[in-house]
Design a protein around this nucleic acid. Structure first.
Lengths: 71, 71
DNA sequence: ACAATATGTCAAATATATCTTGCAAAATAT
DNA sequence: ATATTTTGCAAGATATATTTGACATATTGT
């Protein structure tokens, strides 16, 4: 599912996908796919994103009703 | 760094590394390496572990003192 | 309307998470 | 003390996260 909370946290910081990507050291495509959902990022990348946006893991990546979890 | 919170949550549930691994669908080596630190698991795996242990991402994988974050 | 910026998407290549197998050390139970 | 279970660790193989480059569509500014 799409990660709306991440997108909102990003625009609230007035960052573009590419700017956030630069901050956390990945490609803009990677950020785009995470926001679009259907992607399974790495824990360290999630943590880097959280720190760049002054949020926590639960804020951006925890979903109470999760029905999908492919490893 | 070692993930002590994860290990404590696991033993509190009276689960062995292998039992937890089975529950979340990975190998016991993977669980072992996550607890030992020096590993970078996938977000979906982290979420599966949290669900298996009735914890949240912040409970098990969030560290205030940031010092390492390799992507 | 036009120009510039931002995002969506796709194929092929690279990096790395995870598996498999196996053995040794440590912990726990009998 | 000795079985039994649990954990640590390592090399090679596989699956998948991430990159690179390129193009199309959308969005925003002038």
């Amino acid at each position: 599912m799409k990660n709306i909370k991440l997108k909102m946290a990003r625009v609230e910081k007035d960052l573009t996908q590419e700017e956030l990507a630069d901050k956390v050291g990945v490609t803009r495509q990677t950020i785009g796919m995470i926001e679009a959902g259907n992607y399974n990022p790495t824990l360290n990348l999630c943590i880097a994103i959280c720190k760049a946006l002054d949020r926590t893991l639960d804020d951006l990546f925890w979903v109470e009703d999760q029905s999908e979890s492919k490893n």
